[in-house]
Nucleic acid binder design. Sequence first.
RNA 1: GUCCCCAUCGUCUAGCUGGCCCAGGACGCCGGCCUCUCACGCCGGUAACGGGGGUUCAAAUCCCCCUGGGGACGCCA
Length: 465
Amino acid sequence: MIKKVVTRFPPSPTGHLHIGGARTALFNWLLARSQNGIFVLRIEDTDVGRSTQEMTDGILQAMQWLGMDWDLGPYFQSERLDIYNEHIEGLLASGQAYNCQCTAQEVEAMREEARTKGEKPKYNGRCRELGLWPGPGRVVRLKAPLEGDTGFQDLVKGYNRVDNRELDDFVLRRADGMPTYNLAVVVDDALMGMTHILRGDDHLSNTPKQVLLYQALGFELPQFGHVPMILGPDKKKLSKRHGAMSVLEYREKGYLPQAVLNTLVRLGWSYGDQELFAHDELISLFSLQNLGKSACVFNPEKLDWVNAQHIKNSPVEELVPLLGEQLRPKGLPRADPKYLQEIIPLLQPRSTTMVDMAEQAAVFVLNADDIVYDPDLVAKVITPEAKAHLLALRDRLAWLESFAQSDLEGVITEYLEETGIKFKLLAQPIRVSITGKKASPGLFETMAVLGKEQVLRRMDRALSL
RNA sequence: GUCCCCAUCGUCUAGCUGGCCCAGGACGCCGGCCUCUCACGCCGGUAACGGGGGUUCAAAUCCCCCUGGGGACGCCA
């Protein structure tokens, strides 16, 4: 029987979920979903000083917004201390770990010494054979092998091996009694039955340490897959300075979760020349084989394009609530969903983000009296001559019973034929008079959606300027 | 400094076991078409195999060296 795939995403609540973390989560989530496996969410909050509830909440919210649902968890490492201690005691009892009384300063001195000798900075194993008892200020270290080497097969980077002399007796339990990252991940990943661990390749070099721990604890090794990192535009590790925005900020900026996912998945993964992926496609098409192995840079402009594509391809009903949400912060009146449903198709091909769409929706949801006319634009476009035409047209429109696009076209075509003028000359004056802007969706559709009352009142206002 | 990873257009990438690649797609940028404006769309253009050695009839594709970039060396994760 083939083992069911189990993956996890283990964020540390010491910061926001940014695109790097989100992509790691995405790969794990996709692997689980595509294999009909289990996706576990685990909060790694062993750094009590820096972990906050607020960050935890934000991360959970971001995961939900992106639609990456988890089957198990969220587990909190801070609630599993007994489990870690139990395993640490086991290692101590079997002589695979030991208590160390060296202070942080002393260890730093050892590292400095190694550095001056041109070696890799390491703890020198001073307390290794001392047989010390636990005590205040003491940490527990792994009694790591002094020779030989440690290797593992990586799903994306291939076989990796390091000389054990590069490793040192790293800390498993801190002086404050909390387990360290390496101990806690290994214990949790093993106990929670992880089959695959996909993470950034910044973890590649401490994987051997973890392999050592798996061996010491007698756990079966999972499959590791180290995906290339997402770097900032300056090719440096992503940090607050770059686009390391919180995922939630993309929601505020009007990006669709599906577009964010689509953009992230293409960073380090590809499926031939395909650029756009629907939600279900992501799951059905994802596979480990198509993961790349070199670092990449996140390109916000591509996100814009992908987002615009997704907006264009989204069913109108799905956009209605999203547009509604974006209207409020702009101080625009709330509009009837039915009405939004009518204007959205006009805005879909013109919007990069939902915020952008909301801005363009203003002319539709605003009342005639609240339309803002730019004096310069009006002076330039609504000339005395144009005014005469607008006036004549206004009267004809007033007679219309139906304001359907075809009716509007009929009236205007008729007017053009009678007067012999070109539509081109009339279009901008009409546009400016009913929207106050020099650009808008097509005139007939705009008028049809606005409706007779709004159109006439706006023309009246423009004519009275 | 030591160890590890990586290396195709500005960016994301295709290029699976070498020939179909004087390198394809996408974003961006630049032209053009469409057109009532703005977009969408469509058409076209710009731009890359880091360098040097091999192996081979043939290398972007395999090997080595160099260079470059990144990462890790925490009682952070």
